[in-house]
Amino acid sequence: MLELRLVQGSLLKKVLESIKDLVNDANFDCSATGFSLQAMDSSHVALVSLLLRSEGFEHYRCDKNFSMGMNLGNMSKMLKCAGNDDIITIKGDDGGDTITFMFESPSQDKIADFEMKLMDIDSEHLGIPEAEYHAIVRMPSAEFARICKDLSSIGDTVIISVTKEGVKFSTKGDIGTANIVCRQNTTVDKPEEATIIEMQEPVSLTFALRYMNSFTKASPLSNTVTISLSSELPVVVEYKIAEMGYIRYYLAPKIED
């Protein structure tokens, strides 16, 4: 059986908001390591990998490894019924056909339980090979979200180029073109406001902005985002979830034929 208790229930609400538009149905994997998920979008262009480590929960019990198939839209509907300050407890059984979400108000004067039907989902687990990335950019997540939103009003794709000058986000569309360059900037008041560029060699890749915009729904989870790029490899857009783990999005590039 699985039993997990998360005092900061809002984290789980935010996690759902950051994946439900990308993936409809997914298997959550429960193990001693934690509560995790790996799923592709329906076009198999993007992949999301989520890990919430067991140590991050106030209480975590998982007797054996098993998976629970969930419709993420339905799960989001249920979690939206939890208050932002609520403590969330999840209970499920190996082979069970439902999962229970319990929401407790901080003062314990309101306790709700919601039972959601599970589903059988055939999904392939993909092996994600360790890769040496040509460039790793860390920047404020709000800044990255703003750039993706702004560029998507001009074009459908973004070219992300990292050179010694900085990281450049470019697009073009029917009405014109746009280029936004962010330079390394470590002279900021708070470390989370810094832009840090580690470049082994210059890299330039093209991606669909629709997916990038979807990834930025994870911005409330972390003040910073890390973008890892290598030629001819999917980009990794990672948001760390404080004390608990991460949500990583992999997006296949567009490549000239």
Partner: peptide
């Protein structure tokens, strides 16, 4: 023309 690749072009079932 840039062709959209799929994740499965890069990562294989584990």
């Amino acid at each position: 023309v840039n062709q959209q690749r799929q994740i499965t072009n890069f990562f294989s079932p584990s």
